[in-house]
Design a protein around this nucleic acid. Structure first.
Lengths: 195, 195
DNA sequence: TTATATATGGACCTATCAGTCCATATATGT
DNA sequence: ACATATATGGACTGATAGGTCCATATATAA
């Protein structure tokens, strides 16, 4: 079988660039022209390689989710304790207050907020991504219970949902330009509940 | 002075209809055609009465904020205690889980999420609106401290920020279609922190 | 070398966007 | 009644949206 002209760009890098655009601008507001410019490919290549804008978004969201969950899992494993992991995660996130990074938020919560009331595939994928975060938190809570930092009779699923709520709220606070000191204090209050 | 042809619609009702559209669709995704249809006025009337889409959005957001803060203030005053008010507010909101209302979210947090990284007037107004919610919670915390339900040595501003974080997170959870029971449990955990 | 298969650039398509314009309608003050 | 001022319907504008098309480029298999 002949193979035809080879692809001239890295689909991986292109998808990564698209992810950044959707992250910064949101799904609807990211135009195909924005995407093309960031991905540095031609319009033909985008449709050839990714199908259409919706499929490209799904690819970008899944990539973001994969990267995030993998990174968090690694951090969880490397932490002296699951509680320490949670404290670092929320603490470091709160420290972003006022920065440009803070204004970006998290692609998953951004998407859940933007697409929550649709019932198309991007909306479903956004919800699935939020669930993946809750699953990660659930793992952390269960470990923390095993390590004795959280009472083992407490509902791990409820605590995991509570942590997802907390991270979503924290990200909204950061987007709202809340006072850094108050944001840090609020994040500390959040974790006090676990003890 | 002559007065010219009188306006044929209620600017109040029209603005209210516009608010619903921005609430359901977001700022960018709400097209002027969507707005016109919901407001039941002509294109000329929209631009004549409200200036442009951005100003109409600001009017809608301020209206939403005014309505919300007024209503919450009334509920706070009518409550047997500020703590009871907070429990009702978070409890009732959590009960929306799974409903269409839940998918709508709150126009203020929706806007903060969508517009957070801009630096135009709508973005500033969204942030101002989040601050208004924090101010309301601050009032409730201070009252609750006076009523003895919250220790008076605790930082009322930090607690208010924490409650804003909590409501923003709860709204995101509702938008993500989280399990109703888990959502309610998470909302209860949120308020446990106050005691 | 040639046939084949895939990739690419960029012109092009229709739909829709926010916003403007103007003729016409409808009120008031004299 | 008439001059004046504001409101309205709807056609229109240029810009931009997502997506298609096709001629051309560039690889491989025979």
């Amino acid at each position: 079988m002949t193979r035809g002209r080879p692809i001239a760009f890295s689909p991986d890098e292109a998808a990564s660039a698209a992810m950044q655009v959707f992250w910064a601008r949101g799904y609807d507001s990211a135009s195909t022209r924005d995407l093309l410019e960031a991905m540095k490919i031609s319009r033909s290549s985008l449709y050839q390689a990714f199908g259409n804008k919706e499929q490209l978004f799904l690819e970008a969201l899944r990539r973001y989710r994969g990267n995030l969950i993998d990174r968090l899992n690694r951090q969880l494993e490397a932490s002296p304790s699951a509680m320490h992991f949670l404290q670092e995660l929320f603490g470091q996130t709160a420290l972003e207050a006022g920065s440009e990074r803070a204004a970006l938020g998290c692609l998953i919560f951004n998407s859940a907020s933007e697409l929550g009331q649709r019932d198309d595939i991007p909306s479903i994928e956004a919800k699935r991504s939020v669930q993946a975060i809750t699953a990660l938190f659930h793992e952390a809570v269960v470990r923390s219970q095993a390590e004795g930092d959280i009472a083992s009779d407490r509902d791990a699923l409820a605590l995991a949902t509570y942590l997802t709520l907390g991270m979503a709220g924290l990200r909204t606070l950061l987007k709202s330009g809340a006072d850094p000191a108050q944001t840090r204090a609020a994040a500390e209050l959040l974790l006090d509940t676990l003890r």
